[in-house]
Design a protein around this nucleic acid. Structure first.
Length: 283
DNA sequence: TTCCAGGACCGGG
DNA sequence: CCCGGTCATGGA
């Protein structure tokens, strides 16, 4: 098994990156390493000597460096953050998070499923979906089933997923994306407002899901999803008329720092654990 | 039993 | 534009 140096842990914090709410399919296993899949490839990651190592062959390194967004200058984005000192506490706490360049279709489905749902259950639904309809990959992993694979399924076939009313949303999205009527890749080249308007024509995709799709699926870092956690944070720490767009082209990164900080500290309703979230990750 | 979860949608005011 | 009810599911 190859051992390839991917990045310093100061630039890529695996625990934070995988548990900050942007993705649902990376797991930390009993051996202490993280496992996941994207674009048909799998990866095992672990920390050693202040570095992040992975089992990818050297030839795949450019792919994974891009997936982990290692060539984007976050310090430059952060320099435009104008907000209360509390925002800088969030930044300091969350530094090491990278905004992943996830598969657009997987991201769209994941955040359609996320609505009015909790993170452990979202993860469970997605896991079942991949085991049922994805392709088998190394490390006991599965790919996320593509739209054409899901499009012909019936709602009855979705029943075992316990996705509830969201199943119909997924099926309709699968039909439109699978048939080519809606080209997710093409949305990358559109202005944020146009890409957002396009994706919101899908049933079950409103403002919040659209923003998550733009940020995590299209890597449009100016997108600023506001959910119940973000709403609480904005109400408590920002002026009432605060406009997130004033945070600049990295507003979505600021959002991620805030969301992560709130979920780790905010004892608002309650705390919950998922298998990627336990924080005692020793280098 | 009631409330909540990374909401969306539809109706009425 | 904003408001309340509803949608399906499971954990606390």
């Amino acid at each position: 098994m190859p051992k390839t140096d991917l990045a310093p842990v100061s630039a890529l914090d695996l625990s934070k990156t995988f548990s900050c709410g942007q993705c649902f399919r990376w797991d930390r296993r009993d051996d202490g390493a993280f496992y996941g899949a994207a674009y048909g490839r799998t990866l095992k990651l672990w920390n050693a000597d202040g570095r992040v190592f992975c089992d990818a062959p050297g030839a795949d390194l450019p792919f994974w460096r891009r997936y982990f967004d290692l060539d984007t200058n976050y310090a430059a984005l952060e320099s435009a953050f104008a907000g209360p000192p509390w925002l800088h506490d969030c930044m300091a706490y969350g530094r090491g998070i990278r905004i992943l360049r996830q598969e657009p279709w997987e991201t769209l489905c994941s955040f359609i499923l996320s609505q009015c749902n909790n993170i452990p259950r979202i993860r469970a639904i997605i896991r079942t979906l991949c085991v049922q309809y994805g392709e088998k990959l190394p490390h006991g992993l599965y790919s996320f089933p593509d739209a054409a694979r899901l499009a012909p399924l019936s709602e009855a076939a979705f029943a075992p997923l316990h996705a509830g009313y969201r199943a119909a949303y997924i099926l309709e999205a699968a039909k439109q994306v699978g048939s080519g009527a809606l080209d997710l890749e093409a949305l990358k080249s559109l202005p944020d407002e146009d890409a957002s308007a396009q994706i919101k024509t899908l049933p079950g995709v409103g403002n919040k899901v659209a923003n998550c799709f733009l940020l995590y699926g299209l890597h449009k870092l100016g997108s600023f999803p506001v959910d119940v956690w973000m709403r609480r944070a904005l109400n408590e720490h920002f002026p009432p008329d605060f406009d997130p767009l004033t945070l600049g082209p990295g507003a979505g990164l600021a959002q991620q720092y805030i969301f992560y900080y709130e979920r780790e500290h905010g004892k608002a309703p309650k705390r919950e654990n998922c298998d990627c979230c336990d924080a005692d990750q020793s280098a």
